[in-house]
């Protein structure tokens, strides 16, 4: 059944988009990730203009993270203060990201930026996760990675000025690196149509030693606010948010996520991380092939209406 998208200005099959959103939702529910890094490329692959895909994807990620935040909130698995510090940086990063997004679109480099960023970000994160989880799966008897750092060992950036106490996480960290992390995630999120959870979570765990119990909730909290801001800013500055597409994506992914979450609970930790690593790395490879292999069609056209 085709449905005409009023902002993307093309008809799509409602079942196809819904099915895709449900599948992405399933995966995101299973792994506890936002799924933006799958959703945006798939939408582009289905013919949705990349600008519309990124802007509309933000709304879907906001919906998915809202569900998650409420879950973690009820279980008190959320450091609100830490989340708010990240949000401060995130909002600023989102603003920068949307401005950058608009400038790149005007210059005609947006698709290249999108593809290159996907390759670098997903390639790095996916690659690191892959190595780590392969080690854990095939060398289970080796002492688990590195010796866990003692709590009195501190990174240089944790002792920068403006220290803040985070009671829920039991940490005292300088606000500066946290705000900067927020800026980076907000920027990447609004340019690439991703939430950025797959970056925030490892950084908070490994660099800031935030307790695993609150890290996912806190990351989702930050994603919720930055993606709400991103949706708003995209709508206001470039009018690329397609509300009809957003609705299909939201409903599909929300339903898919519930089933995914159930399957995810039955997965073993190492297998879980290995699968997620393969998935993330696979998307990076897919994009690398796209720009690394000679395309069959070298030419592309971009069309703008001449407004009178």
């Amino acid at each position: 059944m085709p449905i005409y998208l009023p902002i993307a200005e093309l008809p799509v099959s409602i079942f196809l988009i819904f099915g895709m959103a449900a599948a992405v939702g399933f995966i995101s529910g299973m792994f506890g990730v936002g799924g933006g890094f799958l959703m945006t490329p798939l939408l582009v692959f289905l013919g949705i203009p990349p600008g519309v895909a990124v802007a509309t994807g933000a709304a879907q990620i906001a919906a998915a993270s809202m569900t998650g935040v409420l879950n973690f909130w009820r279980r008190d698995a959320l450091d609100v203060k830490l989340g708010l510090v990240l949000v401060v940086g995130g909002l600023f990063g989102t603003l920068l990201g949307v401005l950058f997004f608009n400038a790149m679109r005007r210059a005609g480099y947006f698709e290249l930026v999108l593809v290159l960023s996907y390759v670098t970000l997903l390639g790095t994160v996916g690659g690191l996760m892959l190595i780590e989880s392969l080690r854990a799966t095939f060398l289970p008897n080796r002492t688990k990675g590195q010796r866990p750092r003692r709590t009195d060992e501190r990174w240089w950036f944790e002792t920068l000025p403006l220290p803040m106490r985070f009671e829920r996480s039991g940490l005292v960290i300088s606000a500066i690196p946290l705000v900067l992390l927020g800026v980076f995630i907000g920027f990447a999120g609004s340019v690439l149509g991703i939430g950025g959870g797959f970056i925030v979570v490892p950084v908070l765990i490994y660099l800031f030693r935030v307790p695993t119990a609150v890290v996912v909730g806190t990351s989702l909290f930050q994603i919720l606010f930055t993606m709400m801001a991103a949706t708003m800013l995209h709508a206001v500055t470039n009018q690329s948010v397609d509300i009809v597409l957003a609705l299909i994506l939201i409903v599909g992914s929300v339903i898919g996520a519930q089933f995914g979450a159930r399957v995810g609970q039955n997965l073993k930790g190492e297998h879980f991380r290995l699968l997620l690593a393969i998935l993330i790395f696979g998307v990076a490879v897919r994009f690398a092939v796209e720009i690394g292999v000679k395309p069959t069609e070298l030419f592309s056209i971009e069309q703008q209406e001449i407004r009178l």
Binding site: A59, A62, A63, M228, M232, H234, V241, I250, V254
Partner: peptide, 17 residues
């Protein structure tokens, strides 16, 4: 328009939860 989209998103997110 942006506000309505955001409200739809968080509304559905809450509803799903």
């Amino acid at each position: 328009y942006g506000l309505v989209t955001v409200l739809i998103a968080i509304g559905f997110g809450w509803l799903a939860n």
